[in-house]
Amino acid sequence: MNLKKCKGMLGFGALRLCAVISVLILGVIIFDIAFKGAGVISWEFLTDYPREGMTKGGIFPAIVGTVFVTFITALFSIPLGVCAAIYLSEYTREGKVVRLIRAAIRNLAGVPSIVYGLFGVVLFMRGLGFGASVLSSGLTLGLLTLPWIITTSEEALKAVPKSFREGAMALGATKWQTIRTNVLPYAFPGILTGAILGLSRAAGETAPLLFTGVAFYIPKLPTSPFDQFMALPYHLYILSTQHHATELVKPIAYGTALVLLAVVLAMNLLAIILRYRARKKLKM
């Protein structure tokens, strides 16, 4: 009897250890970056332009660039992704074509981000003629994010019980009315969470930006989608590896990493809070 209990506790302990290690890794990363980067953070750092070859000043244009490109990503991938998810979840019946579409989406999710970058060069920069710009980068990131949005939105829609749809249609609602008034509102928290998480990942991507529009230094902010821009992940990459005085700018690099991390964590936190509140409201 005692041996069994011991084995159980050992097993449980091992699992708990795995969980702790995962949290610990995250903790180490955050702590390291915060420790080394916090010294640089100040209001000036966040609102000032880089000066004297990046060795002084701030990262304001990189912050703006990241926000701008993520915004375009959202505009492109969220409506398209949610509509695709609605189509797949509500309007198709199982069959060869649907299975093919789903397999395609799954495969798209696995395509390396640098390949998306190259594709963006061909399609958006050269093919559609947008050139190196926020637009090209945003659309490329949008393609990257699209499979994620479709998958999480579809899951959210499928989680709505069938009885809601049946009950609405039995009252004389059309299919679209049913979806609009009795399915989408209940899938909304899940869709929103998936969208925010997808965008927070897009905000941290570097490879798709590389050839499609990002630049190391631009003296002014992007004012139109056709301008080039700076971005936090790319800024971090250059400061850490390509800069002529990497040791000197190391604190700034860490500061940039900290800001980027803060942005991503903030978006994740926002997603969690919004989902919690939306779920609470719907329990009504």
């Binding site: 009885s163 809601f164 049946e166 009950g167 609405a168 249609m169 039995a170 009252l171 004389g172 009795n182």
Partner: peptide
């Protein structure tokens, strides 16, 4: 469906 209404086995209030 409006003219021929239905009540289901398991109550399904929204």
């Amino acid at each position: 469906r409006r003219r021929v209404g239905m009540v289901f086995q398991k109550p399904n209030p929204f």
